[in-house]
Nucleic acid binder design. Sequence first.
RNA 1: GCGAGAAUGGCGGAAUUGGUAGACGCGCUGGACUUAGGAUCCAGUGGGGAAUCCCGUGGGGGUUCAAGUCCCCCUUCUCGCACCA
Length: 842
Amino acid sequence: MPMSRYEHRAIEPRWQDWWEKHKTFATATDRTRPKYYVLDMFPYPSGSGLHVGHPKGYVATDVVARAKRMMGFNVLRVMGWDSFGLPAERQAMREGLHPRDITSRNIATFKGQLRQLGLSYDWGRELATSDERYYRWTQWIFARLYEKGLAYQAEVPVNWCPALGTVLANEEVKDGVYVETGDPVERRNLKQWMFRITEYAEQLLDGLEGLDWPEGIKDMQRNWIGRSEGAHIRFPIKGHDAHIEVFTTRPDTLFGGTYAVLAPEHPLVERITTEAQRAAVTAYRLEVTHRSDRDRTGASADAEKTGVWTGATAINPATGAEIPIWIADYVLASYGTGAVFACPAHDERDYAFAKTFGLPIVRVVEGGDLAVEAWTGDGAHVNSSFLDGMDIAAAKRAMIAWLEAQGHGDGTVQYRLRDWLFSRQRYWGEPFPMVFTEDGEAHLLPDSALPVRLPELDEYRPTEDGQPPLARAAEWAVTEFEGRPAVREVNTMPQWAGSCWYYLRFLSPNRSDVAWDPDEEDYWMPVDLYVGGAEHAVLHLLYARFWHKVLYDLGLVTSPEPFKRLFNQGMIHANSYRDERGKYFYPEQVEERDGGWFVKESNTPVSTRLEKMSKSRYNVVNPDDMCEQYGADALRLYELFMGPLEDSAHWETSGVAGTRRFLDRVWRLVVDPESGGLSAKLTRDKLDNAELERALHAAIKKVTEAIESMKFNTAISEMMIFINEATKAEKVPVAWIEDFVLILNPFAPHLAEELWRVLGHEASTAFAAWPTYDEAKLVVNTITLAVQVNGKLRATLILPADVTQEAAIAAARADENVQRFLQGTVRREIYVPGRLVNIVAK
RNA sequence: GCGAGAAUGGCGGAAUUGGUAGACGCGCUGGACUUAGGAUCCAGUGGGGAAUCCCGUGGGGGUUCAAGUCCCCCUUCUCGCACCA
């Protein structure tokens, strides 16, 4: 039964079923072709489903995947679920269901939504991190890290979030609140699992060099790792058989060091505080522990300083002078050695501190005005004995050499990166493969004991005495280890764990004997293109690189870096509407008139602004509605046509109507409205229409290049130009339309498949050969030459493309309008072949 | 405060990287076909102007025959980091 109109509601589900039935996108096993592994950052399957912002990256990778298949690559294109995590646990508590049920329900929603978009995933490789067939291997990798000495337990001051009843990683806390929910976070000392990611700081830094990642993301990682070169210097403490070890990046300023500062938590504080100062020190330390993180971080270098003198003094090894030892919370216990020497003349923080407490300021570098502020710029050293006259770089080298020779210190490298806090007090996460015997010793379970399954619980809150929820599973927790009674670790792993290695599990997701097949790994890795949001710039991407580097060192993977190329798609924003009181309204509740926006029913004025899409802002656009009304192909096209993929974009549903109109024009060009067969406009004859043919080749070229450059918006506009020209043309050769349908295929696959059938082809477009363009066809035989006089456009001439410089200039000078402006002597004539002539006159 | 990026019609955005600014799309205006159209097609659409002209890429300077593009200064916005010694 031929169809005469473009009925996306019939076409799209039909092709989705067809692809599924024919396993069109099952990953090829042929190893003779080049491979291409294109990966989306897999989503957390939330309860609210997808909005149109989510698929932007998925559509982009789908275009790449589909085009690469047509170009002869074996493509690995997969999707899975980052399905452990807090929201499912909270939703479970609200609804009285098990997080597992919540999770599978949410996954079904997400999967249905993705399926509607016609994304060419190999669903046979679907995985979920909360599936025990998956997390068994997450535990297995933990075991490898533990064996390598990279996992350890420590009593550490942690970010405790009372509202959630869990600790959070440093990266998850900003300005004293949990970045996801805004709940306040406080400091507590707890025994936690840590990863020695700091041991890999240098490698993680160096590895960035060769990666094809956005420079901004690489910078953020460099910044996060925070390598700084400097020195450790030892200051003997007067009257104690002990010394303070400080870290400094400015050993050259040692002669200006007039006091030392310890972090309030520093272990030496207790020992060196004098009786006279003890009360003040104790009070200050207490005050600091009560001070929230928000107060303590987030202050700038010149912020007002607090602190207390310990009563003790140290000897400056350079000057031999006695300097007071203070404690102050501007010195962080967790960075460097938790102690600094202060050179107030040349450090903003020390300057602010010295001014507050009237401590001496001694200049050792020329420059600036110390009466006003610290001088941190370069200059000749003064008051510095053997350093006098040197600039900073030279003085640093000289000082480090001197310290090392005298045994007072060493040149060293320090990282800002901290060890990774890896345990959470949650239920819905991976259990650790660890037990503790009665002596308190931790033991790694053998691989044969994996997976350590989550026990069934009906209550996911922490216990009354503050233990993690797993402590409620008494029967589960009590076990034995090598015949001795033991208890299981009741913390679980953070959500980052599963996403650290999922790209490897996709290689052999159904193997129960190995985490991944080494041959598959050798063939497919590294990921050729990884697309996702920039919000994962430091967290997920740094953690995953860390695990990968460990696996590389263990010989378990063959590539030192997991993601060769990274691309961050921008977010989609939409207008939101709210009244004075902050109440939001749905777009269909408001209307625009007289230059303002009003609620239709009440005439209440509302203000509009562009915001991130979210349920609470009433500005979410649902892809299901778009698929229903305009079709998945139109939606896919609009997602990419909005603007450069990396930019954030402003959603306008009318734009989807625009890409839909384009697809309608394509349809009408090919399909006869009466018969449903080929349009009479199409011809099997050869046709001499250089303009149209050029437009086709321009489109093929642009689309081909877009697969590498990811500049899909301009590629789509080039396809539109071809269709506009073809619509105007009397006749269009079938062969040209066929090429066009093939380049359209990655963007609008349902329509392309349908038209491909109408054009008489039996096979799917999925593996049709990618059209090639001919540079010769792109050459035009006439050029439009811009003619300028003194840089101003005075005429445009149509000339043969092979016009000589002389002929072009002659034609330009002959032009009537040019003549009018050509007064005075011609000083110069500039000719840019094929583009313009500029005549410079008097 | 430090670091990175951005600013082009009513709107989203193009511009071979120094060579006709505004491609393509949205929106808008007019027309055609229509009982009707939120369908389709055609024409127009940066501003000013009768004009073959003038002005115009956040603002100010500069380099150049020629600047959205290069250099200097400023403004605004976005993102990241933020007492890391």
